[in-house]
Amino acid sequence: MTTSPLKVEEEQQRFEAACRDGLLNGGLAKFDDGGYVSSLTDSVWRGWKAGRASIVIDKYDFDTFSPHDCGIDAVWMTEVERTLRAAGITVKGDSDEANANAS
């Protein structure tokens, strides 16, 4: 899956907030290319991204809904998908573009 630069930036902000909240103490200085100066921080960031990338929800697990639902069911499913994407979670069954443009 290709991730949009905006999505990466949002996720990096979440990561850095977690670092400041105790995940890592310091080490958030960056090179001009955006990579972390600290090799420990860089390693933890790569692990963070890999962990987030492994979270995939299959929207078809909600077998009571179909892509052709209308009314409240369709609105509910759309809201679930939007909320999952906004949290950086991949929604299986969508194109990569739908997940990358979820912001």
Rank of each mutant, 00 (worst) to 15 (best):
W45G: 03
V37S: 03
S4T: 15
S38C: 10
W76V: 08
P67D: 10
R52S: 06
A87Y: 04
T90N: 07
A87H: 06
G51R: 03
Y60E: 11
K7I: 00
G26A: 09
M77C: 05
V8M: 07
I57P: 00
F15I: 06
A87V: 02
R46N: 12
E16D: 06
I89Y: 09
F65A: 08
F65K: 02
S103G: 15
L84E: 07
D96L: 11
Y60I: 00
V44G: 08
W48V: 10
E79Q: 04
T83C: 00
L40E: 14
G47C: 12
P67W: 07
S43Q: 09
A50P: 01
Q13C: 00
G71E: 13
T83P: 00
S4Y: 06
D61S: 10
T90S: 10
D69T: 12
V44N: 04
G71I: 04
S54D: 12
S95L: 08
V80G: 00
A29P: 06
K7C: 01
D96K: 11
D63P: 01
T2G: 10
S38F: 08
R20I: 00
W48G: 10
D63W: 01
Y36T: 05
S43D: 07
E10F: 06
E9W: 00
A18G: 14
R52Y: 02
H68G: 04
T3Q: 14
R20V: 03
T3K: 12
G51F: 08
Y36D: 01
L6A: 15
T64L: 02
I89L: 04
G22V: 05
A86C: 00
A74V: 08
E97F: 15
L84T: 13
C19G: 07
G88R: 01
A74T: 07
T83F: 01
V37N: 06
D58Y: 14
S39V: 03
E10S: 03
R20M: 05
S103P: 09
F15L: 02
R46F: 01
S54F: 06
M77H: 03
R20T: 10
N101D: 14
D96S: 08
A29F: 00
H68D: 13
K49C: 14
G35T: 14
G47T: 11
D73V: 12
V37T: 08
Y60F: 09
A18F: 08
A53R: 10
D32G: 07
S38R: 13
E9G: 00
E10M: 15
K92C: 00
A18Q: 09
F62H: 07
W45L: 01
R52P: 07
D58M: 11
K92Q: 12
K30I: 02
V91L: 05
L84Y: 08
K92M: 05
T41C: 10
A98K: 14
S39Q: 12
G22E: 15
T90W: 04
A53H: 07
R14L: 11
D96M: 12
V91G: 08
M77S: 12
T2L: 14
E11G: 00
D94V: 00
D94L: 15
R20K: 15
N101V: 14
V37A: 03
F31V: 05
F62S: 03
Q12A: 10
D33E: 11
A98T: 12
A102C: 11
G47S: 15
T2A: 11
G71Y: 11
E97Q: 15
I57Q: 04
F62Y: 03
S103K: 13
V8P: 03
Y60C: 04
E10W: 03
K7G: 01
R46S: 05
